[in-house]
Design a binder for these strands. Structure first.
Lengths: 338, 338
DNA sequence: ATAGTCCTTTGCAGCGCTGCAAACGGAACT
DNA sequence: AGTTCCGTTTGCAGCGCTGCAAAGGACTAT
């Protein structure tokens, strides 16, 4: 049986299809009488508007896409959890894409591919993509970038102040008396900008305390995963002068590092203090609980969606802005014990 | 500037729009000559097909929706991680929806709402929805259900054998010498079917070993979260006869339970052995690592997508089937120490 | 040379909706 | 009674593509 259409409803209600459309969309001035007639007909026929047709007619899809490197990384999962309802509230469906941090995949998404028609705008947390790459994108694509990539003025950027946050994290380690502090998670230019900002904070904290930085204690990792943290920590422990504290560039890295430490019979924080970044739920339950930098994820999500929807609505190009949301240091057992 | 259309390409290539369509879709017999001409024109104009228009014309959206209760629950995040590429490979985009376990929300999604046009089929992991509710759904919606809800014959169901898996988990606890075994995560009918199957396995393992079941050791929880596990474990420890092992209905519950145990200075597994369910990544890195039931998530994802796409393609109703995928017991430190 | 065959290409109509601007009808005013 | 005005309702065209079936062209068989 055929799906009922606007025309069917119009016929039953004795009005024009256009009027039915007006009622359905809550548009314009429709008298109570006609509205009632139409609504009765809609109910009787069980009519539901065909979104596909509407999309074609309006040229908009009512969808936004959120692109993250990995869906099963708790930080991104938690962020998405916040983005979806925020977008829904503004009438947008959320498409999700994961790129596995693959640069080509990210490029394809922001480029002018055929999928472009499926979404009205994009929120992306780039990983493989370097600053330059962002310019190859479809210039008509409303874009909001999360994380650490600076805006080039054509898109918005939402994130926390990574340098300040990292400085706080390391200063905290210094404050509790640690002097040989390592950093796990550094990454080279061009794609590792998030990492570089954190390394900068690492240095800044040392400078502020008048401490020298032992460059050999800055450990690079391919990613921010548990396994990277575990491996890097093992390498640090195999040295003859292991650190007494580690600033990990994500909570997952911290989790991996702790795993290695405890596995070797060392105590956290007594032997080595650990601080992470992101405040994922795991960190609040792991043993010990993980001190961390807590970004305001709800605010990031809300701000990103608001800005994106604004861009979509504006029609033309909108100057890009840098939006910083709040963060705070959350000391837990992995630094202060207890 | 207007987006270039099929017609523009046709004009430039000197063929009919229909032929361009054929080339774009890889359809039919198109001679190499015309194909070349058309492809040159496409490249020159930077043409990309308008998916919205195609959707309207074909009446299909090329999207499937995956509905999970919580996106930030690692189990679901890991499952989605597997579903997205599987669907993409078959030409489908994945829409994601989270319901917060809200029954009304789940009902709305499977009902005949207007969003129906946005997807060709649905994979749902129901939580609030009881068996009966599944019948209120849009009968034309191709549906695959994950988890524990049995098929009523109109949709497919993909999952592991929960009773068998739970039996194995508890038998493992018995095999390592535990006799006072608790269960955390039971839930009442009608929505707690997953939980009930696990409770059934709990009983079956006791029966097989000739052990009595202490009913007071079966603890109900509202959800399968860390906080539920932590709270329930605390209650168990406050009794005068605490258990020497706990079967947790999810790894998150296990994580919470361990958190409580260690917080009270108890040792895992020496004082209390813990086994979880789901094999989320956390469990492989927590301290101690968590013994668990490992469902073959890749297989679940692949099977679910394959069946769904088959259903979508079939046009008519397809008899529902029960599909069981493999699982295995993975003993780790939380039961066998080390 | 002519008819028949087969395969490529085409034209038409329409998917169901909305943008636009015109038509309509009633109320208010002269 | 006639005109103007204003707000509701309507008609038309078209978003860009595909399904269908027929047209066209090349080639083979008689």
């Amino acid at each position: 049986m055929r799906e009922t259409t606007l025309r069917d409803v119009a016929e039953l209600a004795g009005v024009s299809p256009r009027t039915v459309s007006n009622v359905v969309n809550g548009y314009a001035k429709v008298t109570d009488g006609t509205r009632a007639k139409v609504e009765r007909a809609i109910a009787e026929l069980g009519y539901r508007p065909n979104v596909l047709a509407r999309n074609l007619a309006t040229g908009r899809s009512g969808q936004i896409v959120v692109v993250v490197p990995y869906l099963d990384t708790p930080y991104f999962a938690e962020l998405l959890q916040a983005i979806i309802p925020a977008a829904r509230k503004l009438g947008y469906n959320v498409l999700i894409d994961q790129t596995d941090g693959d640069r080509a995949h990210e490029e394809e998404l922001i480029g002018r591919g055929s999928r472009r028609f499926l979404f009205d705008g994009m929120i992306i947390s780039p990983l493989g993509l370097a600053q330059e790459d962002l310019s190859v994108r479809d210039p008509d694509l409303p874009l909001v970038v999360l994380g650490e990539r600076r805006s080039d003025g054509t898109f918005d950027h939402v994130g926390i102040d990574d340098v300040a946050a990292s400085t706080e994290a390391v200063s905290h380690l210094i404050a509790i008396g640690r002097r040989r502090i390592a950093a796990i998670g550094d990454q080279p230019y061009p794609t590792g900008e998030a990492a570089q900002l954190r390394t900068r904070g690492f240095r800044a904290a040392h400078a502020a305390a008048g401490l020298p930085v032992d460059e050999s204690l800055i450990i690079g990792t391919a990613r921010f995963n548990r396994i990277d943290g575990a491996t890097a920590m093992a390498a640090l422990l195999d040295r003859e002068d292991p650190p007494d504290a580690v600033f990990c560039y994500s909570d997952l890295v911290a989790s991996g590092a702790i795993h290695t430490l405890l596995g070797r019979g060392l105590r956290v924080p007594e032997d080595v203090a650990i601080i992470g970044y992101d405040d994922i739920e795991d960190g609040r339950y792991s043993q010990p609980t993980i001190s961390t930098i807590q970004p305001d994820k709800k605010a990031i999500a809300q701000l990103a969606v608001d800005r994106l929807v604004m861009r979509i609505g504006s029609g033309g190009p909108v100057p890009g802005v840098e939006l910083k949301v709040a963060h705070r240091l959350v000391p837990r057992q992995s630094t202060i014990g207890g």
